[in-house]
Design a protein around this nucleic acid. Structure first.
Lengths: 287, 287
DNA sequence: GTTCCGCATGAATCGATAG
DNA sequence: ACTATCGATTCATGCGGAA
């Protein structure tokens, strides 16, 4: 959808989105493209948007907000943590805070601080119960299980399944042959330095991880600040429907031209809508 | 100093401490030892202490607070971020937030969240200008392969192959010939689970890093929640003076018996004081 | 002398059960 | 109806003894 976030969101129906994943323009950054929101007015600017997001998200859905406060006058600004408090007053549950550890952070040297190597990924929900497909993002174990448990003799497995106080208790069978472990709330991903025309804010791995974790094929993903469309692109690749909102025609055209609905993916359907009123059929389809 | 944090802090003179590094009892945890502070009353409980800390810290000093909010009713509690806002009202500057990535976090599985693998290290200052000895925590590039890469855990290798061999991505050529590299604001350290009498809350590497970064030999380090004394022990090893406050005689005795002033370190002097009034000479010396 | 393996241990969290 | 307690779940790490 080409247009302003506030007005375009109003067109989306209630309880229709499974996952919102976005990285809004940071305060005062990308000033030339987004007009720049001053840090002191950031919360006030974002709250009407988060209110609409709360409306369009399904009760079982999740909102993941990628954000990091900037430094002002030598201090970390407080608009992010103030935003958390205010969003809770709106009815959001602050379920979790993931850390994106940027392995190749932007270089630089300052007398009073080191390079900033991490960003927040704030998880908000409407209810305590929401969809989470943890198995989709499991990671390889350290060779712990392979090199150690695998070598348990057959007699050990059969004859002595309950090693009291061994640390694994009776459930040792659960470990046999297991090669993957559940991840943690710290994500290690490098920023992409690929020189595209419009560099993305985050690597594709980032939305991919959350899309796999919080949606299944055919679900609907929303990015109200589409930008170069990383979230939308990944959602499409993974067979999820997606809605992107972008105010700059330049970005809008770029994404529109680069993304094609996948023919081999039956349930997926691209929902990158044209300007309001231009294609009434599209709008009807969306509803 | 054996005693309650509130009362003991009042005995310290103004502007006398170069670094405060501490990990206060987390809300509702270690209930049996510390009496347990409920999450809802945590800010109210901590503010009088941080007020005293502001008084005793030198204008050029730094306060590093290790803390992490717990989950309550499926949500991350907000007492930590509320504490940041309130401490700023007291006059603290929230200079930076470091991330401690705990490589061996507590295991467990739940339907709605992953294991919590990180903690906050909040840096507060009294002024924009403070002492920071960045070179002291630089990673020696000469020993790089030995000290760092060799110590990569099996998990690191499996989950994050980019750290093996190539180091940090494609830009390794930039590092050839360089002797040292500055760290970032993300620290990767495992908790120590050694079988001691009283296991420490954090590994020695953690206070060591901040003591090197924010103090020089002969400076004074304060830990108002001494516990098993990791901060004090490390400060002593590094030739810094140190003050530890602990309310439990059990811990107090443990640390007192285990730490000896180093004879070969001229400017260092242990400031682990006896109970008030017992050894007036010690008290006088401190002043 | 080196590698391998058993084992204990942890600032956790959820859901069910008991008070 | 709300709070306290308990069992179940999970995995990286280092020590020490064995191979």
């Amino acid at each position: 959808m080409l247009g302003d976030c506030h007005t375009e969101l109003a067109k989306l129906p209630d309880n229709s989105i499974d996952l919102i994943f976005t990285s809004p323009p940071y305060a005062d950054s990308r000033k030339n493209t987004y007009g720049g929101v001053s840090p002191d007015k950031y919360v006030e600017w974002f709250l009407p948007i988060s209110s609409e997001l709360l409306r369009v998200l399904k009760p079982t859905g999740t909102f993941v907000l990628n954000i990091k406060e900037k430094v002002e006058n030598g201090e970390r600004h407080t608009y992010v943590i103030e935003l958390i408090l205010e969003m809770r007053k709106q009815g959001w549950l602050w379920t979790e805070e993931f850390i994106w550890h940027k392995k190749n952070s932007y270089p630089g040297k300052w007398p009073n601080r080191f390079r900033d190597s991490w960003e927040r990924l704030l998880q908000f929900n409407k209810n305590r119960k929401f969809h989470m497909y943890q198995e989709e993002v499991m990671v390889p174990m350290g060779n712990w299980a392979n090199s150690r448990l695998k070598n348990l003799s057959e007699t050990d497995k059969v004859r002595d399944p309950s090693r009291v106080g061994s640390g694994f208790g009776k459930k040792i069978a659960n470990w046999i042959g297991r090669e993957k472990a559940y991840p943690t709330n710290v994500l290690h991903m490098a920023t992409e330095t690929k020189n595209r025309n419009h560099s993305a804010v985050f690597p594709e791995d980032l939305p991919e991880w959350f899309i796999k974790l919080f949606t299944k094929r055919g679900d609907c993903v929303l990015d109200p600040f589409m930008g170069s469309g990383t979230t939308i692109t990944v959602a499409n690749k993974l067979g999820r429907n997606s809605v992107g909102i972008e105010i700059l025609p330049e970005y809008y055209d770029l994404v529109k031209n680069s993304i094609q609905p996948l023919n081999d993916v039956r349930p997926a359907q691209l929902a990158l809508l044209e300007r309001k009123g231009k294609y009434a059929t599209n709008k009807t389809k969306r509803s």
